[in-house]
Amino acid sequence: MYSNGYIFRYAAIMVIIAAALLSTAAMLLKPFQERNVAIDKMGGILASAHIPDVTASNSIKLFNEFVTEEIVLDQNGEVVESYTEANKENAKAFSLDMKVELYKKSQGKPFELPLYVINKNGQSLYVIPVRGVGLWGPIWGNIALSSDLNTIVGVTFDHKGETPGLGAEISTAAFEDQFIGKTIFDNQGQFTSIMVVKGGIGKLPENERIHGVDAISGGTITSNGVNDMLKDVLETYLPYLQKHR
């Protein structure tokens, strides 16, 4: 039989070893991981604007090349900071975390929003980062709007742990490409967001199909998550979008 003292010692030593291992790994690897996360973030922003041949190794270079301006907005849609200098990853807009900012918003506190301007073939594209919740964890992505701030040029989505084959399909080209050419305002200038429709956009009236995409069959909760994410985040950017359309 084991004495209580032995059990306590065993548990204590085990916890210390595990904690030491985990925190050492977390501390030592953090700079590498953050670098990877930043590269991934840049890659997502570029990919939403359909910049070709973005890979992990060239995203920083391409990011500096294509992104012409990084804007920080306040909650009223006013421009707080506009960053146009060479080293784009040092901009304040790039360091803003949508999760934190959206949390501040939900608490009724003042918040700031990032907006990226990409110059592609002489055309200005506006990239809005989005973030929401899926079935198992967070989902996020980027929406690139053309210079009319209405038509979607491209989107990318990503997720932490949606079900492979079902909810995880939101990050496939088949789902993302549906968004191209859709608009977020109707003819009267009313904000409609993009609806993710279960059963397909055939269910919508003819004139609303331009604001909708097909949901993923079997991935209802994740699809609803995308729907809510787009509505919530785009609404947050609404003051700016309406002022500049």
Partner: peptide, 14 residues
């Protein structure tokens, strides 16, 4: 599992 995941995250992000 977590340590392996952290290492993968740092060196082979994809």
């Amino acid at each position: 599992v977590i340590v392996v995941d952290q290492i993968l995250k740092a060196f082979v992000y994809d």
